[in-house]
């Protein structure tokens, strides 16, 4: 049977939306448990940190430029903290390093 791309996309989009929307609508009140409050407080930090490393090393055409982006990103995030400058700085680091290693 020929599979429908539309149905594939509908299924994937539906699942993703439900995953995102259900906790927001079902958890209406403030969670009282200190453990769960603390757990949820830490979730974004752990998730974003784990997503960044080591994935950043394989996001570019060479692990060296990926590592350069990581170092530059850490430095800008630490000393400056601006979202935009940090993102652009990482891109610039990759660009410069790849000029030399090509």
């Amino acid at each position: 049977m020929e599979k429908s791309v539309y149905l594939y996309l509908l299924l994937a989009a539906g699942v993703i939306y439900l995953i995102r929307m259900l906790p927001l609508t079902l958890i209406r009140r403030e969670i009282k448990s200190t453990f769960f409050r603390s757990f949820l407080f830490y979730v974004p930090y752990v998730t974003l940190a784990a997503m960044t490393f080591p994935a950043i090393l394989s996001a570019t055409s060479s692990p060296i430029s990926g590592a350069a982006a990581l170092v530059v990103g850490l430095l800008i995030a630490f000393f400056d903290g601006n979202l935009f400058r940090c993102a652009v700085g990482c891109c610039g680091a990759v660009f410069l390093v790849e000029l030399f290693i090509r």
């Binding site: 995030a77 903290g81 940090c86």
Partner: peptide, 25 residues
């Protein structure tokens, strides 16, 4: 050009760092 997509590909990681590092400081 590959060098461009390579450089742009790390933008989101830079943002992740800018979100988690300042509070960690």
């Amino acid at each position: 050009p590959p060098f461009l997509s390579s450089a742009l590909g790390v933008a989101l990681y830079g943002m992740f760092l800018a979100i988690i590092i300042p509070p960690a400081r």
